[in-house]
């Protein structure tokens, strides 16, 4: 049963991270479209931020894993 709850938790985290990265990507693409000359800078910042969001998601994933393995 704990495994199931953990799986739901992982799913929720995935939704959150997907929303975050989706918003980030949308803003970045818009930024690049507006200022193509700043594409390199925006991409760099986007990748860093994406990694940070991913880190949060994985943090939650680890918590879920902890639950699965308890």
């Amino acid at each position: 049963m704990t495994g199931t709850v953990a799986a739901i938790g992982a799913g929720l985290v995935a939704i959150g991270a997907a929303l975050g990265i989706g918003k980030l990507a949308a803003a970045s693409v818009e930024g690049i479209a507006r200022q193509p000359e700043a594409a390199a800078k925006i991409q760099g910042a986007m990748i860093i931020t994406a990694a940070l969001i991913e880190g949060v998601a994985l943090f939650a994933a680890v918590v879920c894993l902890l639950e699965v393995l308890k």
Partner: peptide
């Protein structure tokens, strides 16, 4: 701590 978990979880996951 976040630094620790980020790297660990990324590589593990």
């Amino acid at each position: 701590f976040a630094l620790t978990i980020r790297l660990f979880a990324n590589m593990l996951a």
